[in-house]
Design a protein around this nucleic acid. Structure first.
Lengths: 153, 153
DNA sequence: TTTGTTTTCATATATTTTTTGGTATTTATT
DNA sequence: AATAAATACCAAAAAATATATGAAAACAAA
């Protein structure tokens, strides 16, 4: 972070809003030529500031319009065991995020499904079959106010 | 969704894992030439299946290593009012996501900050100054097990 | 000032994107 | 079934962009 100057930060800001901008256009925004911008981007990739480039898709258009946060509590005996809970979670594609949290529950999952009946199916036939899961609490998302992948840098 | 054939879905799958793949390489994976792949991508963009292309950055390297979910309850009188809560939320760059949820709380925020003291500063000096906020509950993330932007298509 | 290092520019080359025209293939229509 | 219309594909050309290279400028340290 201390290695990054203001130009680097502006490049990162741009790329996390639109990574398909070409070097020429980005260079002109920064009042530079293509070479320094190109080399800075490559350096930012090499040094791991930029992890990957992805396309963000429209959930609703792809029939995954329902978002649910699911809090999970492990069974008492499993708390200290290095369980394969994590392995199971990673394998389920409906679970798009999983956090180990502090508080009443052990994990919080973000789940994307088509509708309520597919969520029911997910909980009954997939989530509940995972070993060591004690109980769960589902928090349904009614609306998405803000959803950004861009860090405030 | 019904408009998408298997080739479209495979293109989307690839692009949401790595959007910097070039058309030629993508085409060879699909046993096609560049033109149909190129045209399909353009159509998927035009039709809104692909919303945007972004670079994903490393939180920790950019000093935003602390994630907190913050549940927010609005004040009673504000529940029905079309408050400018939303406008205020969108303006705060630490809040990377905001959901209107069902359950005990009205909103859930995902917040990215550097450390505990910056979170304290955020809550005290920014979040709490937003009108109509009743009370809040902070859920601290200890570990990120899974974090994908790719939809299970 | 001198030396070494870093950053940038200008330009050339390699690669990729985008366009174009033509040919199958499918779908609809008569 | 035959014809027309639309769709999806391929091959190749043109345009734009990415990448590489050598020289100039800016900067830092001795």
């Amino acid at each position: 972070m201390e290695n990054l100057d203001n130009i680097d930060l502006q490049i990162l800001k741009q790329l996390q809003e639109n990574s398909n901008i070409n070097t020429k256009e980005l260079a002109s925004k920064l009042f530079l030529t293509v070479t320094p911008v190109y080399e800075r981007i490559k350096r930012l990739e090499r040094d791991g500031y930029i992890m990957k480039y992805v396309a963000l898709l429209d959930k609703k258009k792809l029939n995954l319009g329902m978002t649910v946060f699911c809090n999970v509590r492990l069974k008492e005996h499993a708390k200290n065991v290095g369980s394969n809970f994590v392995k199971d979670i990673v394998a389920l594609p409906e679970i798009i995020e999983c956090y180990n949290i502090a508080g009443d529950y052990d994990f919080m999952l973000k789940i994307l499904v088509e509708d309520m009946s597919s969520y029911q199916d997910f909980v009954m036939n997939k989530l509940s079959t995972i070993e060591n899961i004690g109980n769960t609490q589902s928090i349904f998302v009614m609306g998405e106010i803000k959803h950004s992948t861009a860090l405030a840098i």
